[in-house]
Amino acid sequence: MTHINSDDCTGLMAFWADIEADYVLRYQQWHNCEHIPERVSISGFVEGRRYRSLDNKPHFLMYYDTQTASVLASDAYMAALNAPTPWTREALTYFRNPTRDIFTRLAVTGARGKFAAPYITSLRFDLPEEDEAKYAGLWLRAALEAESVERVRFYRVDSAVGNMATSERKVHGGGPGKQTYLVLIEQSRSPASGNGPVTRGDAAVSGDIRRTHEQCHQYWLEMVHQKDESR
């Protein structure tokens, strides 16, 4: 069995949304049984995951690792976005407060574990461009040293791809977020007791933190689907 390693993927589509409470079970069935397999089957898609808010509110992070960000503007993916299935059209009407962004990876420390990380922290923010290198180096390395952290990835939004109008977007109404940067922190144990990786990262850049429009959420894993290239 052969898998493309998601450590080698530089593209990411991330979608944050609340789901109407009465529809959550139906949403999970749709996402598990139709939507993630459909998306991961597209050329250039490697893995899809869904995480649920650690406080068990009906708030979710859904994302796909792709070989490059250009995959998320490919004809095959655009065709899927512009021809949603009936079930997809139904499910998307129950999304609330949706944000969907396309990202290119700038840096990564650590490596994907043997299994998909059971917990993840999503940190979205704006940052002066001259501080990019500081985060790609010192900040990520320090965050990786926190207890139970397996991998830390740093992304910049690709607004040209993310702003494309599609049939699916017309249904869910979600556009890009206002933040330029994303850090994903994968952990083998629950981060409920605190946010050690972020604290360590901030300390490493000597307190010279200029993040704005920051949003930090913590999640636990509900679903992962990885492509088997041997089939």
Rank of each mutant, 00 (worst) to 15 (best):
Thr109Val: 15
Tyr27Ala: 14
Ile19Arg: 06
Asp22Met: 13
His225Asn: 03
Asp8Arg: 12
Thr104Val: 11
Thr199Leu: 08
Ile19Cys: 10
Lys134Glu: 06
Arg200Pro: 00
Ala76Phe: 04
Ala107Met: 04
Trp220Ala: 09
Met164Ser: 05
Leu127Arg: 14
Gln29Cys: 03
Ser74Arg: 09
Leu81Gly: 00
Trp16Glu: 11
Arg210Phe: 01
Leu25Ala: 15
Asp8Lys: 15
Phe95Val: 02
Glu20Gln: 15
Tyr135Met: 09
Met164Ala: 10
Asp75Gln: 15
Ile4His: 14
Thr93His: 11
Ala111Trp: 09
Asn5Ile: 05
Val183Thr: 13
Tyr51Asp: 09
Arg50Phe: 07
Asn56Phe: 04
Leu72Ala: 13
Glu20His: 11
Thr212Asp: 02
Val108Trp: 01
Glu186Ile: 07
Ser43Pro: 07
Gly162Ala: 10
Thr109Lys: 14
Met223Trp: 04
Phe45Thr: 14
Ala192Lys: 12
Arg156Ser: 07
Tyr77Ile: 01
Pro37Ala: 11
Trp220Ser: 10
Asn56Leu: 10
Ser206Pro: 05
Ala17Cys: 15
Val24Ser: 10
Met78Arg: 14
Asp7Ile: 15
Thr10Cys: 02
Phe15Cys: 03
Gly11Pro: 04
Gly177Thr: 01
Ala73Gln: 12
Gly207Cys: 03
Phe154Tyr: 13
Arg39His: 06
Leu12Arg: 14
Asn82Ala: 09
Tyr63Asp: 06
Leu92Ser: 02
Arg200Ala: 07
Phe60Gly: 04
Ala80Asp: 02
Phe15Asp: 06
Ala14Leu: 15
Cys33Tyr: 12
Arg89Ser: 08
Tyr219Asp: 05
Leu12Lys: 14
Arg141Thr: 03
Ala107Ile: 08
Lys57Arg: 12
Tyr181Asp: 03
Tyr77Pro: 02
Asn195His: 07
Ser193Tyr: 05
Arg153Tyr: 00
Leu61Lys: 13
Arg156Tyr: 00
Ala146Thr: 04
Ile19Lys: 12
Ala142Asp: 02
Met164Asn: 11
Asp202Ile: 04
Val171Phe: 07
Asp8Ser: 15
Ser230Val: 03
Asn32Gln: 10
Gly11Met: 08
Arg105Ser: 10
Pro98Asn: 05
Ala146Met: 08
Gly162Tyr: 06
Arg124His: 13
Phe60Ala: 12
Tyr51Val: 11
Ser167Phe: 04
Asp228Gly: 00
Val205Cys: 07
Val152Leu: 02
Leu184Tyr: 08
Tyr155Gln: 00
Ala204His: 03
Asn82Gln: 04
Ser167Arg: 14
